[in-house]
Design a protein around this nucleic acid. Structure first.
Length: 290
DNA sequence: ATGCCGAGCATCGCTCGA
């Protein structure tokens, strides 16, 4: 499975199709479609082997879930404020698991009404994720969280200190979600030095690997993370999104008791940890996504 | 303090993103 803030699905349909064909994730969460539901490339995605569930919006926002398997809609908006019409949240059931695709408000400039909206949205999200975790069912939260969780998740924290993504309130809200019991998939695989997921278009930040980690995959306690990573090559492509896809391989936690033998996927994850993070120009890790 | 880049559109100048 994977999550990708694609920054216009119309502008980058070809890149999306190439990436799907190459990496073949089972489930994909997309954010910042910048397209209405009608303008989403449903047929091209279908031809690539994926069903799609889209909550679009003209010009801004927009989220979608793609799946190779049957995809049952659960909710198409974050509960808690019927007046909030921004297309930022979507849940679907796939293969007995629940997938939530979220695009958390950016919140800049800060302070101000946009930051207030971000924090209110986060409070609504915390309620929903607490409900989902409490079911004990396998649940995955994927998306652009617009939060740099700690100073270790950004190239140079002091240069972004006033940004909404680094504010103590934003970080506390993210920590509150994690404290419900979720596992941060990237952090689980890279406990020491995490890979970045976003590099803005300015000042050759990509070329300098001056990035941020703001796209996150959180899994519930019914699931176990086998491996995870970032498809950095997509950020180095022609006319790229400013975000790279983040992927994770998971399995049901109960499987561990049934199959105690070591799995190759686990070995691969262990080997990956011992390597230094690749440079932007280096080929990305094998982009297999469960 | 600002623009830097890139995308959408009520398009050639603004808003938004992060």
């Amino acid at each position: 499975m994977a999550t990708w803030n694609i920054n216009s699905v119309v502008r980058r349909t070809d890149q999306l199709l190439d990436w799907l064909a190459r990496t073949q994730p089972d489930v994909v969460a997309l954010q910042e479609l910048k397209a209405t539901t009608e303008n989403f490339p449903v047929q091209a995605v279908k031809d690539a082997g994926y069903r799609s569930l889209v909550v679009g919006e003209r010009s801004w926002n927009g989220v979608a879930l793609l799946s190779r398997h049957e995809l049952v809609p659960v909710i198409k908006a974050l509960p808690g404020d019927a007046s909030d019409k921004q297309a930022r949240y979507l849940e679907a059931a796939i293969n007995g698991m629940l997938f939530a695709c979220l695009y958390l408000p950016n919140g800049n400039p800060q302070p101000g009404p946009k930051f207030d909206y971000k924090l209110r949205w986060f409070e609504r999200l915390k309620k929903r994720t607490a409900e989902l975790f409490a079911t004990g069912q396998p649940v995955v939260l994927l998306g652009d969280w617009n939060v740099v969780p700690t100073d270790a998740d950004i190239y140079k924290p002091d240069s972004w200190r006033k940004d909404a993504l680094l504010q103590p309130e934003s970080r506390q809200a993210f920590a509150d979600v994690l404290a419900q019991g979720w596992t941060d998939a990237i952090k689980a695989v890279y406990p020491d030095k995490v890979p970045f997921t976003f590099w803005d278009y300015f000042r050759k930040h990509w070329e300098r690997d001056a990035g941020l980690r703001i796209d996150h995959i959180l899994v519930s306690s019914a699931l176990r993370v086998l491996d995870a990573g970032v498809d950095r090559d997509e950020r180095g492509a022609e006319h790229p999104s400013d975000h790279a896809p983040v992927w994770a391989e998971i399995e049901l936690a109960e499987k561990r008791r049934k199959k105690p033998a070591a799995k190759p996927a686990v070995k691969r994850a262990a080997a990956k940890k011992s390597r230094p993070a690749p440079k932007p120009s280096a080929p990305s890790d094998a982009p297999l996504a469960g």
